[in-house]
Every structure is written in C-alpha cells, then in structure tokens.
Computed example of a mutant assay.
Amino acid sequence: MATTHGETQLDNEHFRVIKWTIEPGGVIDMHTHEYEYVVVPLVTASMHVVQADGQELVAQLVEGVSYTRPAGSRHRVENRGATDTIVFVEVEKKPGA
C-alpha cells in the first residue's frame, strides 16, 4: 500500500516547515492551508492537485525550483505515478513573520 508521510521539521512563531514524501499511489487528503506557503521540490516529477471544486491540475515539480501559493488554498495532492516518489518541503509563513 502506498504511503504518504509528513515530517514536521520546524514549527515556531514564524514558520512551519514540513517535508512531504508521497510514494506512487499516495495521497495527501483534502486540506486547507492556513498560511501563505512556499513549496521547495526535492525531485523532478509530476503531481496531481485536485481543488476543492473538483478542478484538477498537474504540477510539474522541478528539483530546487520553488513556487508559492496563497493562504486559504484547499486541495488534495496525489502521486499518480507508478515508480517515482514525490518529495518536497513546504514552508508556511505564519502571521507576523
């Protein structure tokens, strides 16, 4: 069975940093981001993002090329690949940071 693992690396008054590992077939269930955040991919791969309204997009991750999303983003993340594990670090900026 595919696994998904989130490892909290830092959580203080300014930032929350989580390293995510999503094996082939793995999913991060539907969730809402409380804070603006940056994603730092540690691999080059494709991941599917399903928005709360059902819209889907394919995020093309490039190792070391970061991107940002606003607070309030609600979605599910899926690794639909058969062989590649998706790994990224998510950095959430807390209010006042």
Rank of each mutant, 00 (worst) to 15 (best):
A2F: 10
A2Y: 09
A2P: 15
A2G: 03
T3M: 11
T4W: 07
H5G: 00
G6V: 08
E7G: 00
T8H: 01
T8Y: 05
T8G: 05
Q9K: 15
D11C: 11
N12R: 10
N12F: 09
N12Y: 10
E13Y: 02
E13D: 14
H14M: 13
H14R: 15
R16N: 12
K19T: 12
W20M: 14
W20N: 14
T21Y: 01
T21K: 04
I22W: 04
G25D: 07
G26W: 06
V27C: 09
I28G: 06
D29G: 11
M30D: 09
H31K: 05
H31Y: 03
H31G: 08
T32Y: 00
T32S: 06
T32C: 04
T32H: 01
E34P: 11
Y35K: 01
Y35C: 10
Y35T: 11
Y37F: 15
Y37V: 01
V38A: 08
V38C: 10
V38Y: 06
V39T: 15
V39K: 00
V40E: 14
V40L: 15
V40D: 14
P41L: 08
L42G: 00
L42S: 08
A45K: 10
S46W: 02
S46T: 14
S46V: 13
M47T: 07
V50H: 00
Q51K: 09
Q51E: 13
A52T: 07
A52R: 12
D53E: 02
Q55N: 13
Q55R: 08
Q55H: 12
E56G: 00
L57V: 07
L57H: 08
V58W: 03
V58L: 01
V58D: 06
A59E: 14
A59S: 12
Q60W: 06
Q60I: 08
V62G: 00
V62Y: 01
V62Q: 11
E63M: 08
G64C: 07
V65C: 04
V65A: 10
S66F: 03
S66A: 12
S66L: 06
S66Y: 03
T68F: 03
T68Q: 15
A71I: 00
A71K: 09
A71S: 13
A71R: 02
S73K: 07
S73A: 13
H75P: 02
H75R: 03
R76H: 02
R76N: 00
V77S: 02
E78N: 01
N79G: 06
N79I: 08
G81T: 11
A82E: 15
T83D: 15
D84K: 10
D84Y: 01
I86H: 04
V87R: 09
V91L: 08
V91E: 07
V91T: 13
E92K: 07
E92Y: 03
E92L: 12
K93P: 01
K94Q: 10
A97L: 05
